[in-house]
Amino acid sequence: MILLENVSKSFKNGVHALRDVNLYIEEGEFVYIIGPTGSGKSTLIKLLDGELVPTRGRVVVADTDVGKLRHSKVPLYRRNIGVVFQDFRLLPELTVFENIAFALQVIGLDKVTIRRRVREILELVSLEDKAKSFPRELSGGQQQRATIGRAIANRPRVLIADEPTGNLDPEKSQEIMALLEKINIEQNTTILMVTHDSNLVDMNKKRTIALEEGYIVADIQKGGYIHHD
């Protein structure tokens, strides 16, 4: 599903964010990406969702060579990929229902389809009773569930979660983990989760890829957080 071949990315200011990265992730996998700040995690995400073009090498997602996409084709490609952020980014003046519907409106779906799909999503993320609430009326965990709902609304094949539990307490984090696992299994969505949360990684062991200074320093199938000294 995701293939990186000898991918390097350097910026004009001389920063080498990624160096010669090789990576293969199967369809339906659940992978953690860990590493300290500045290790290249954000760059990796941006390469995957087409915002950045690799300086060298090839990034292939869902049979698309992302680096070679024409500017005008990037939005269509991006429909394959859902992104969840640490800071939720819900639109404050819209209800939960409208926030999820917004993601479907802007890709031009019709009203009936949107309504049906949003109901499904609300059920999946257990927010049926919060459909008419505004983001400010929700707890952090609920807001993050709404964001995840929005990200998966148009059935992306890959879901990238950038520190989805960064603003949540351990209990709520576990709730989000459970939801992501459910999506992973029920919808066969490939999930990449960037995280700092060592407890979470240790408790829910999965394939773990560690980045440091732009290199992949570990890729452990059985999982577990790698501690640095």
């Binding site: 939005p75 980014r89 917004f102 802007v106 929005r150 990200a151 148009n154």
Partner: peptide, 17 residues
């Protein structure tokens, strides 16, 4: 800005935006 960022994230075309 926020709205546009989300639109881009979920794959709204440039023309749509």
């Amino acid at each position: 800005n926020n709205e546009i960022m989300i639109m881009r994230n979920v794959g709204a075309t440039n023309l749509f935006i």
